[in-house]
Computed example of a mutant assay.
Amino acid sequence: MATTEVYSTTTVSNPKTSWCMVPSTHLDKIRFLVKIGEVLLSFVAFILEEVVNSCISCGSLYFFEFVSCTAFLFTLLLLILLSTRLHTKVGIDCWPKLDVIYTGGIAVLFLLSSIVFAADNSGTTPEKTAVAFGFLATVAFILDLILHIKSKGLPWTKDGKQESSNGGPAPAEQERLRTQE
């Protein structure tokens, strides 16, 4: 007597039910890992800056604190939104533009704050280490920006070409007009 399985494998996992959607249309695996690196590096830079217990000129310290904290919190938020379905609930349609502008802006701010903090600090070990992590975070944000542009191009262009803005018909419409002639 041959035995047959009562329960066969009839269920297939549904990828739409998973909470993390990497790779997705907005975030591939490499950029996901880079964004995790950005979050961690900016968090470490922020914590190291918080360890500094005295400063001669505190303006540069406060600027670095603001940038590292902002980078940590908003990059974490962006990472959560882009790697889950939450980005569909927010009501923003231009995620690639937001990602490029945000990442580029934070890269510039992190570079500026790291330079200013490196030039104007007391020379203590926590300050030097915070500056080092600030520069590492800057490199991570620049790498993320480069990877985004290399993989998808600039979000305000199509196929690497500038979109038509002279009021003429769109390229798809021009093609349709040619076929009707």
Rank of each mutant, 00 (worst) to 15 (best):
S113L: 14
V116L: 10
I92E: 06
L111F: 11
V116T: 15
Y102V: 00
A118T: 05
V116W: 15
D99V: 08
G123M: 10
V100C: 10
V100P: 05
I106V: 08
I106A: 05
L98E: 04
S114R: 04
C94G: 07
L111I: 11
C94Q: 02
L98Y: 03
L98N: 04
D93T: 12
I115C: 08
V108T: 01
S122F: 04
V116K: 13
K97L: 01
F110T: 10
V116I: 13
V116A: 14
F117Y: 15
F110A: 12
D93K: 12
S113I: 07
T124V: 12
F110R: 11
L111E: 13
I115E: 07
W95V: 03
I115S: 03
T124Y: 02
S113Q: 07
V108D: 02
A107Q: 12
I106M: 08
C94P: 02
D120H: 13
I106L: 08
A118K: 05
D99K: 09
S114P: 05
A107C: 15
D99S: 12
V100T: 04
V108K: 02
A107V: 08
L98S: 02
L112W: 04
T124L: 07
F117E: 07
A118W: 00
A107K: 01
S114V: 11
P96E: 08
A119F: 12
A118D: 09
A119R: 09
D120G: 04
T124S: 13
S122Y: 13
P96T: 02
D99L: 15
S114F: 03
D99N: 11
D93G: 09
P96Y: 10
V100A: 14
S113Y: 04
I115K: 10
G105A: 08
W95P: 05
V108G: 04
L109T: 12
V116S: 13
L111S: 08
I106N: 01
I106T: 07
T103A: 15
G105N: 03
S113F: 03
G123V: 00
I101P: 00
V108C: 06
F117S: 01
D93M: 09
G123F: 01
L111D: 05
S122L: 10
N121D: 11
T103D: 15
S114D: 03
P96G: 04
P96F: 06
C94M: 03
D99C: 01
T103S: 13
D99F: 02
D99H: 13
L111T: 14
V100S: 05
D120N: 15
V108W: 14
G104R: 06
A107L: 09
C94A: 09
P96V: 02
I106R: 01
N121W: 11
V100N: 05
A119C: 14
S114A: 15
D99I: 01
T103N: 10
L98H: 02
Y102F: 12
C94F: 10
L98K: 01
F117I: 09
G123L: 00
L109P: 10
V100H: 05
K97C: 06
